[in-house]
Design a protein around this nucleic acid. Sequence first.
RNA 1: GGAAGAGUUCCCGAGUGGCCAAAGGGGGCAGACUGUAAAUCUGUUGCUUCGGCUUCGGUGGUUCGAAUCCACCCUCUUCCA
Length: 346
Amino acid sequence: MSEKKQPLLVVAGPTASGKTALGIALAKEYGGEIISADSMQIYKGLDIATAKPTAEETEGIPHHLISEIDMGVSFSVADYVKLAKEKISDIAHRGKLPILVGGTGLYINSLIDNVNFDTAETDGSVRRRLEQEAGALGNEAMHERLRSVDPETADAVPSQNIVRIIRALEVYELTGMTFGDYKRMNMGKNSPYRVCMIGLNFRDRSRLYDRIDRRVTLMAENGMVEECRAVYENEKLGTVCQAIGYKELIPYFRGEDTLESCLDKIRQSSRRYAKRQLTWFRRDERINWLYLDEIYNFNEFIEICNKITTKNPDFGRDFLILHSAFLILNLINMFAKKEILCYNDN
RNA sequence: GGAAGAGUUCCCGAGUGGCCAAAGGGGGCAGACUGUAAAUCUGUUGCUUCGGCUUCGGUGGUUCGAAUCCACCCUCUUCCA
């Protein structure tokens, strides 16, 4: 059973931790191709604000699921999983190693844990109606309604979290199941992948935050503001309107706030986002964390790599040996170049 | 030099004698999350051996009791010279 599963390398971590660079390095080493797991990079446009890798940065490595969706379209996890599965099998059929790289934890987990979204197939009309009702009746009333059909979920979701409440009600209307039953039925069965997960992080959180702050400054210098302004003036947006960088700049475009103040808001939002990402990823015990601010010596490298490889026997012996060697070389390199991972800086 | 005002817990800011370790917001930290997820939401945020202990610019008073009243001092802001 397990020998038929498709190997999938996953690089996860908070924003600005260097996922893109590590992904590319791994792809070069193994003849891999990158599949982005990023809810914003998948949209066309906002290239700078969403920190898409530039043409030079990709070093010729094919990147998938970046700039694929028009900005006016609403896109969801369900759509993502569908597309990503296709890409992965396509890459695998060409004899390449698929490497999933991204910071959208929900997308990554839904994909690798094989969450089934077909049970509650929807065109969005139920959802829209429930949202309207919530607007008219208030959160409390919706929470009570949920309690009457699905007390388990009502207990688990605070009445303030209207997004969750509406989804649970939507699932109930669509399937007749409580949200708990729905999840138990559709989650984590028979994943077609054997994953090796690598997580990037810093032991000292302020190091991460510094990188985020610096990166925002660099983005602004590289044209993020102009890029966002053009979108603000010309585009109808779907899910992308939530992109950090874009939404914080709107008060500036309206003349209601200064540029510097808005840039600070972007830094702030990014830091808080990074923290939420960490909260999501930290609970996944499959992730092998690499702390970029730790001074590793050679023996420690061997140890870390052994740990990773023994935890992922499915990946095969040759792969593992290569993998270990690679990680050692690459990490040493990263440190030698002093955090080359930070958005082209210096 | 004269007049008025202000100094509160990481920040902003409420509090004008007890119900104040001190509202509220921000930030930080921790968590939840499975069709909007760069979203949405929750908890927590002086120390503690949980009995207490030390906080509201400083010092000294008044009072049973002060962040709140009085005196002086320090710092800052605005206004008049």
